[in-house]
Design a protein around this nucleic acid. Structure first.
Length: 210
DNA sequence: ACATTAAGTGATT
DNA sequence: AATCACTTAATGT
């Protein structure tokens, strides 16, 4: 774990902090599709993403889902930060998009480190900043983009976090992620295919224009 | 061969 | 853009 840690965060954190993370952190792996944080969960530790990608999702009272953003290697969950500080339940769901490997940090350390390590402070502020940016982007996407543009952006994002332009997913799953119906996705995907932006297969989609 | 699941399509609101 | 109803095609048992 130590080398992996150094590889991903070595340039960010000072040695003393890396040491602390190394001794206090718990390494964990999740397989793709595993739910890491469920709605309403209490957060007792904070994750540092070593590899893989995590899909952050919101859900309304009717159980309708909506994808907010993806976390990638080197990221941390901003929701967790506010949960740890405010002692509230998680208002989001986190599902492993790919196989994920991460380190869990005890939440009590977070605030202590904030004052004792400048690099930690910078890291937290930086990732908070990134998260807010992504959230704003997500809002823009939902509010101002038409569904066909949203769909194409979704496909590109998904290809990005998976580092693979061949996506194994179904029209139904996409419709759930984008909060719309399967039929609509099928039709829009057909349109994108005719425009030469994607290639459709059964249970998979190849993104051509990245 | 049969059942199940994914995807395509016309018509309606 | 959503929903219904139905078809076709691919896949699993």
């Amino acid at each position: 774990m130590k080398n992996e840690l150094a590889k991903n965060f070595g340039y960010l954190f000072e040695d003393a902090l890396l040491e602390e993370i190394n001794t206090l952190g718990i390494a964990r792996q999740f397989k793709a599709e595993t739910t890491i944080i469920e709605l309403g969960d209490f957060i007792k530790s904070m994750p540092l993403l070593l590899s893989g990608a995590i899909k952050i999702t919101r859900e309304d009272a009717n159980g309708d889902e909506l994808v907010l953003y993806y976390l990638e290697q080197g990221d941390t969950c901003a929701m967790t930060l506010s949960c740890c500080l405010g002692q509230t339940k998680s208002k989001i769901r986190a599902v492993a998009e790919t196989d994920v490997s991460l380190i869990l940090l005890p939440k009590e350390k977070m605030t202590t480190w904030l004052s004792s390590y400048k690099t930690w402070q910078a890291f937290i502020l930086e990732s908070y900043h990134n998260r807010v940016e992504e959230l704003l982007q997500a809002v823009d996407t939902i509010a101002f983009l038409k569904l066909d543009e949203r769909l194409f952006k979704y496909l590109k994002d998904k290809a990005m976090v998976n580092k693979n332009d061949e996506l194994t997913t179904t029209h139904k799953q996409i419709s759930e992620d984008l909060h719309t119906s399967r039929v609509v996705i099928s039709r829009l995907l057909k349109k994108l295919e005719n425009e030469g932006k994607v290639k459709l297969f059964r249970s998979s989609i190849k993104v051509l224009e990245l």
